[in-house]
Amino acid sequence: MTKTAWVFPGQGSQKIGMGIDLQDLPSAQTKLEQANQILGWSVMEICQSEQEKLSQTLYTQPCLYVVESLLANEMFTHSFQPDLVAGHSLGEYVALYVAGVFDFETGLKLVKKRAELMNNVTGGQMAALMGFNQKQLEEELQQTPGVVLANDNNSAQVVISGTPEAVEILLGKVKTKRAVKLNVSGAFHSPLMESASREFQQVLESVEFTNAKVPIISNFEPTPTTDAGIIKQHLEQQMTNGVRWRETSLEMEKEGIEKVIEIGPGKVLTGLIKRTCQDLKLVNVSSLEQIGK
């Protein structure tokens, strides 16, 4: 049997029309009704709305959680099973649901609160850097207060996060092939999220986590674990700390993973993993017809 990991993308992967092919499945309809009751709006309607609305944090995160969860459910229905799971930022919540750490409704309620808190944080800036000198970047980050590494995606792509002034200063110091400021309201995965993180930790403390059925690699500490207490501790740190995806990719390979299936819209994560681990077989499942191919 091929040792397989399932990975789940986060904000930025959303696409108009995602999940539409799932809405007629009886099992999906039940989950969609539950989601609409929890959220107070229709996931499928938002997924079919204009890109600007779907890209608002308030809507993006719950929509991605629901669509990716439904796709994962169909994978289980077709008798597929992961040996390991991981998710990028928001995607980690889908990974936790898939691993049985909490149920669908609990995960969605957490994601809803997370999205609301993150949406309310303003005054920050994030920027993606492609093609840079790793050593220079590390040195400039240490010397520039107010900006941190938010996403270490692979050796050629990272995301920085911080105050607009600090991000601007760093972009002026580091030579890159390309730098793109992201259209986000706040400095996600940075200390500037501290107040939102503290409020969210109180919510997390009230939720009971169960030991994972399969190991999960967290964004905060890329070492596989099934321990509920450790998983919660890691999740509590996620909002203010960086996503260590390059290390996650290397850890999957170290764990003997041969195949990685990205479940969700787009091919962001398989693209990132390919640069770090060229020998892994990479598969994308963003629709019903791709399951089992």
Rank of each mutant, 00 (worst) to 15 (best):
F102E: 06
N73S: 05
W245E: 00
D152K: 05
I216K: 09
V174A: 05
F209L: 12
Q201A: 14
E92G: 04
M118D: 08
M252E: 11
Q125Y: 04
V214A: 02
P26T: 03
Q233H: 12
G131E: 00
A72H: 04
P62N: 13
G146T: 04
K259I: 01
A28D: 05
M193Y: 06
P26S: 00
L171I: 00
T77G: 07
Q48H: 10
K31W: 03
L64D: 14
P26K: 01
I20W: 09
L108Q: 07
A95Q: 03
Q134Y: 01
E205A: 15
I231V: 08
N284I: 12
T30L: 07
L137Q: 05
K232A: 02
R114A: 07
E289W: 09
T223K: 13
G186Y: 08
M130G: 02
G12H: 09
A228E: 07
A179Y: 00
V7L: 11
E45R: 10
R178W: 03
L182S: 11
I273R: 13
A179W: 02
S69F: 00
V214G: 07
G271S: 15
Q157T: 05
Q157E: 09
A187V: 08
F132Y: 15
E236P: 02
N133G: 05
K175Y: 06
K113T: 15
G292L: 06
T122G: 13
G146F: 01
G10F: 05
K267T: 09
L280E: 11
I217F: 00
K113H: 11
T176R: 01
S49R: 08
I160G: 02
S218P: 07
L54E: 12
R114I: 02
Q136R: 11
N241G: 04
L170T: 05
Q202L: 13
P164Y: 00
L22N: 12
T226I: 13
E289C: 08
E208I: 10
V111P: 07
S27K: 12
V7Q: 09
D21K: 00
A150W: 01
D152I: 03
L58K: 12
F209T: 06
L71H: 11
L182P: 11
V214R: 00
I291S: 10
